[in-house]
Write a protein that binds this DNA or RNA. Structure first.
Lengths: 196, 196
DNA sequence: CCCCGACCGGACACCGCTGTCCGGTTAGGT
DNA sequence: ACCTAACCGGACAGCGGTGTCCGGTCGGGG
């Protein structure tokens, strides 16, 4: 019977917990120090040895892909029911919010694409956005002239705004201003707490 | 009497030429291999020793700043006479073109800003754009609602498009599509050879 | 013609990161 | 209670980049 709280990180049963600790540590350190942070620091932050790190994730890229996987899983959950009220707007906000969480994501995306010939692995946004966008357009919430392609281009633009922002505290508002400039329907005010 | 062609890169008189060779090499290698290219490679590419490199440019940042300096000098030349026909459109195109020349510029900008507290050193675009924009707006070429601030935000968006482009050959057209999305007046077709 | 100061260049020591290897530890099965 | 297989962790060697140091080279001035 597995205890939910472990006193140790040794033994076969700890493998899963160690993996998660490494993933969390990587997410934190990538966000704080950038994608080029030493992997030894990730192991230290996770409280495991370097051996464990390299066993679970042979290289930096595997860490990045696992983090992407988590993010995409969350988005796919949001996109699962396109007819839920506010499905598209919640999805779109979450995409932008994920991007805002760490400017390191840009470097990760770039590096992952350079090393992986197949773009599909690294960019699942087209499939994720397709249905929710169509439904939102049918409901008149999003202009018809915006294609999935346009949305992805807008997302890429936001990368530029975030990565060039001097003060991290301003990243969010700059990104929202940028989105409003592209198309008002893609932006929102943070005052409205939910737009279900 | 200085000869325009030198047979050697030794001696006091070669200092200037060596400096330029280093700058050109850095520009080339940053564009090709990214900002993190080894400085030893820059010295080799320039055909000088590492000693000369570090004498002219104590660190990587000095190289980057000198490259920016060249770029800004060119832009300031274009902006010197805001009333020349097509002054703003030529200036704006050149800004975008400079950005397209190397995706490494993004990393350079980010790194330079992180290390230099004073933003003015690294971003002179506001001053450069101010007068030409006003004149172009007075002539009805650019919508009044676009501020210098908006233009700079648009420029930062373009960074994102360029850096996330998988195929470098597509960077230009993607950037132009993105600009058109923000505001048609900021984009152009590459077919028109000049819009003086 | 010679000398002197300045500059060049690459060898090299230092440093931090990567990835591996093996002794030590743990849980579960018998 | 013991045994075994799997897993942990950190020491360590290898590697590549940085920045320095000094012997060698050059050109202009006296």
């Amino acid at each position: 019977m597995p205890t939910t709280q472990r006193a140790t990180n040794r033994g076969p049963a700890a493998a899963g917990a160690n993996r998660r600790a490494l993933l969390d540590a990587a997410r934190r350190l990538f966000a704080e120090h950038g994608y080029e942070v030493p992997l030894s620091a990730v192991a230290r932050e996770a409280g495991v040895g370097q051996g464990s790190l390299y066993r679970h994730f042979p290289g930096r890229l595997d860490l990045a892909l696992a983090i992407f996987e988590d993010n995409y899983a969350e988005l796919e959950r949001l996109a699962a029911d396109p007819h839920a009220p506010g499905a598209f707007s919640q999805l779109w906000r979450r995409i932008i919010d994920q991007t805002l969480e760490s400017r390191a994501f840009v470097e990760m995306v770039v590096e992952a694409r350079r090393q992986l010939p197949d773009v599909k692995v690294v960019n699942r946004l087209p499939e994720i956005l397709e249905d929710p966008l169509r439904v939102a357009q049918a409901a008149g919430l999003i202009p018809r002239e915006l294609s999935v392609h346009d949305l992805i281009l807008a997302h890429r633009m936001i990368y530029g705004v975030i990565v060039t922002e001097t003060d991290p505290a301003l990243a969010r508002s700059s990104a929202l201003r940028a989105l409003a400039m592209v198309n008002p329907a893609l932006s929102w005010s943070d005052d409205e707490r939910d737009t279900a």
